[in-house]
Simulated scan of single mutants.
Amino acid sequence: MTKQILKIHNKSDIPDNIVQKENQLIEKCIEIEKQLPTFMKDFFIYLKNGVALSTRHAYLQDILFFCKYLLLETNLTKASQTEEISQDDFNGIKARDINRFIGDYCTRYIVEENGTPTIMENHNRALARKKSSLTVLFKYLFRDEIVKENITDGINPIRLPKPQPDAIKKLEIDEVAKMLDTVESGLGLTEKELIYWEKTKHRDKAILVLFVTYGLRLKELQQLNISSFNFNRGDFKIYRKRGKEVNMPLNYSVEKVIKDYISIERASDDQISEKHKDALFLSLQKTRMTEKAIRQLVKKYTSIALGTTPSNGYSPHKLRATAATSLIQNGFSIYDVQNLLDHDNVTTTQLYAAHKKNVKREIVDQFEWLEEYDHKK
């Protein structure tokens, strides 16, 4: 059966492609909610209005996974379907049951698909997210008197490794130059890659320059439209997490690569279907590039800069880290970089600041008190 394509009546200022994608995710959330117990309905409303859409989807996935575990792996319910699990069943769940689910079952379980068993493993970061989903659920159910006890205090902590600045993967400035030289000249590409490069080099260059200039998230770049750009005013519009609209200033480098791509390489409007006519970055099939295609493109060019295989190339998120550390190394404050990259917390930006090499040496060398050593004077 062919899946029905939703038609969206968009009355907001947000571009249709972004509204369409959000509604597709909303539909996925609704499908999961249909499989969950009806006594959770008010919790679904809470998620709908209280958290980001991607978080809502992640929580629902985790809760459905837990409900399936209750059916298949425990004696905590006599229900045969997840939606049949009762309020009384949830009242019988103790903290130790959650700890067994997260600490034992989730670390290693088997999924059978088409008769082939696959071992699935979750490490601490994934386990912490599942713990968070269930903690939010049980706190809500206790608050609304659906369960009688707040069992969340008894859920075992999960220790996450502290992010280490030295572990942040990024390109050095000379590697960025090499990457941009590759996309400019084709040097380092295979014969097969060169065939495609001839048709997409201006597009690829524009994508890479946008990533390393602004540290855009993959989703933010993939959603860009022709109408996002106002060259007369020298800015372009992006939509951050939680639908936050932001105007970003254009510099000369970015303006040039975008204009070159549009004028030299991008297909003309009469060759593009109505659905993709406003999309900035197009595939060779003249449709909006997917996040997967952009990710593969970035891995290909970064692997050449790093001197490694395409599978070991860097993701777009590593170019976000590259932008952050490059800006800090060029003297911009962590608060300016936090603002540009849209970090919720400045401590995230501080991780990139720690990458500035020999920062103490640079400071004291430029701050001599004795005149004979002060080169500035």
Rank of each mutant, 00 (worst) to 15 (best):
L218D: 05
K219I: 09
K219N: 06
Q222S: 13
Q223L: 12
N225A: 00
N225W: 05
N225C: 03
I226Q: 09
I226P: 06
S228E: 07
S228C: 05
S228T: 02
F229S: 05
F231W: 07
F231Y: 11
N232R: 15
G234C: 00
G234V: 01
D235Y: 15
F236K: 06
F236R: 04
K237L: 13
Y239H: 13
K241R: 13
R242E: 10
G243L: 14
G243A: 13
G243Y: 10
G243W: 04
K244M: 01
V246A: 03
N247H: 15
P249H: 02
P249C: 09
N251I: 14
S253G: 14
V254S: 10
V254C: 08
Y261K: 14
Y261G: 10
I262E: 00
I264L: 15
E265V: 13
R266C: 07
R266K: 07
R266Y: 02
S268K: 14
D269F: 15
D269E: 15
D269N: 15
D269Y: 15
D270S: 11
D270P: 08
Q271Y: 15
S273F: 04
E274L: 15
K275E: 12
K275I: 08
K277L: 08
A279E: 05
A279H: 09
L280I: 14
L280W: 12
L280T: 12
F281K: 03
L282G: 10
L282Q: 11
S283G: 08
L284N: 15
Q285S: 14
Q285F: 07
K286F: 14
K286P: 05
T287K: 14
M289H: 11
M289V: 11
M289F: 03
T290Q: 04
E291Y: 08
K292L: 04
I294E: 02
I294H: 07
Q296A: 11
L297H: 03
V298T: 12
V298D: 08
K299V: 05
K299A: 13
Y301D: 00
T302L: 06
T302R: 04
A305T: 10
A305Y: 10
L306Y: 01
T309F: 02
T309A: 04
S311C: 07
N312W: 08
G313Y: 09
P316T: 13
H317Y: 00
L319I: 09
R320M: 01
R320T: 06
R320A: 02
A321H: 15
A324I: 09
T325K: 08
T325D: 07
S326F: 04
G331Y: 07
G331M: 05
F332A: 13
F332T: 02
D336A: 11
V337N: 07
Q338P: 03
D344Q: 04
N345V: 06
T348K: 03
T348M: 01
T348W: 04
Q350T: 09
L351W: 00
Y352K: 08
Y352C: 02
A353E: 11
A353L: 12
A354G: 11
